[in-house]
Design a protein around this nucleic acid. Structure first.
Lengths: 102, 102
DNA sequence: GCAAACGTGTTTTCATTGCAAACTAGTTTG
DNA sequence: CAAACTAGTTTGCAATGAAAACACGTTTGC
């Protein structure tokens, strides 16, 4: 009965970190965003944003392209197909949990 | 615009742990449950269930009553008003996140 | 009648992780 | 040319989740 709730324990831990979920949600809407933009939108410190992005990249959820805007470094992030799919599944799990606990 | 997503970073970290969310969800539906029942429903090991329950109790989210069933120890858990409210807020946050990322 | 298995939890150990602070490296400004 | 700024990365550390070990009493099998 209440046993379907248990499905939540199977949830994607990488996305279940709020900071990362927000990053991915932004990228899901925008297709591409740079480091500074992400920092402003998320409110994260640069240090934390940096490590979260690295983790998402290592998981294959985002791609990171390093280039320059004028003379300054520019880090561009985009969701991969893998990341998009993982996020979709993650949202579904959340949604199911919310519905099952009504 | 995408800035409301950021609200997720404010989420209740105690409930954002899937194991604990499931425990609380069960208690929200049942009003009261014993340790063994919770262990079976959640699939957690006894050790982990024990520590999660202790954390929920310390936060004032659940009450724990220790007694006996026959000669065996019996640990009864119930959601407090505080816990119920926290869980309600938590569900709302999840729900909002899901909706905002559609 | 006593050793082994069982019931019901708790405590300990350990690797992971999220966060803040410090660091890196180059650029612009006064 | 020193100070401040841009754009990140790395380091240090305290918190934490999971598994294993421990505790303590009860029942069963021989």
């Amino acid at each position: 009965m209440t046993n379907e709730l248990r499905a939540l324990t199977d949830i994607d831990r990488l996305l279940h970190e709020p900071s990362r979920a927000v990053i991915v949600a932004i990228l899901a809407a925008l297709e591409s965003a740079d480091f500074v933009f992400l920092q402003r939108e998320t409110g994260l410190t640069r240090g934390n944003l940096s490590t979260h992005l690295t983790k998402l990249e290592q998981a294959g959820y985002i791609s990171i392209e390093k280039t320059f805007r004028g003379k300054y470094p520019l880090t561009l992030c985009a969701l991969t197909a893998t990341g998009r799919e993982a996020f979709s599944k993650y949202r579904k799990k959340l949604s199911q949990f919310v519905e099952q606990t009504e």
